[in-house]
Write a protein that binds this DNA or RNA. Sequence first.
DNA 1: ATAAGAGCTACAGCAACTGTAGGTTCAAGC
DNA 2: GCTTGAACCTACAGTTGCTGTAGCTCTTAT
Lengths: 148, 148
Amino acid sequence: MTAKHADIGLADIGIGEMARLSGCKVQTVRYYEETGLMPEPARNSGNQRRYGRASLERLKFIRHCRNFGFGLNAIRELLSLSEDPNQSCEAADKLASKHLAAVILRIEQLQTLREELTRMTNACAGGIVADCRVVEMLADHSMCDGEH
Amino acid sequence: MTAKHADIGLADIGIGEMARLSGCKVQTVRYYEETGLMPEPARNSGNQRRYGRASLERLKFIRHCRNFGFGLNAIRELLSLSEDPNQSCEAADKLASKHLAAVILRIEQLQTLREELTRMTNACAGGIVADCRVVEMLADHSMCDGEH
DNA sequence: ATAAGAGCTACAGCAACTGTAGGTTCAAGC
DNA sequence: GCTTGAACCTACAGTTGCTGTAGCTCTTAT
């Protein structure tokens, strides 16, 4: 039998192995297929998905991007970029820079939050709710240092 | 007419004002009602919601907790705590401390991420995708410093 | 031949809203 | 009294990125 898919014959692994080797769940792989991130794979005679090495690499790429915090739409762009290796990498750089800026912003927000929460928990001396500084601070915005 | 609700007659504002004064959307107020965070308010003759001061304070409390990053379930607990002012505030303190720990952890994760993304974008020298370090790093986990 | 385990589809649920459609009510101006 | 536009109503779909479940079928080892 000749392979109809480029994938077939090179590795021929099932969805469970794909999940295991990429560090995600089986359902996640199917979900990526559903949303077009992963191509529809070949099937064996029993209608079960069979993947090749290229698909595994693609899945690993996706998972790696997810670990970097990229959203699925950004990953879609990154995938289409990496499929066309002769174009300028400006778009990829822009995506990464934009994401980095968002991460930095989020860190700043969380740091402000951390300070407020620290202040709040430090102010709690035990006792009853009526005297609790935590509850009081949650009820009264004027007790906050900055805005949030 | 005598007020049937404790709320009524004290302020008597509509849902639009509630949203405006608490800094959220009208739908969000209705959503909080749907999920039991806010009580069902009185209605006027035209079936429109009428709120009193107590409801506004409750909504502000909820929004403030949200600004602190608490989830709705945590807020539910905090609300029921603040309704019973004679019990120990240990539970409130625990909730805040637990949340603080989660925030600290998240900051650490994002800082690792920021370093990796900075390394990635710095490595990009322009040019074409085939030579792009961004795409390369996304494809190859071994180029990462730590785990993520 | 059988039984465990893996795979299949289809769909519901999570968090915390947000947006839309298609209608009703209110308040102000004439 | 009438009109008009803003605000309000309900009900439901969509967002993001999965995860879990039910009720099957298929593979593989014994």
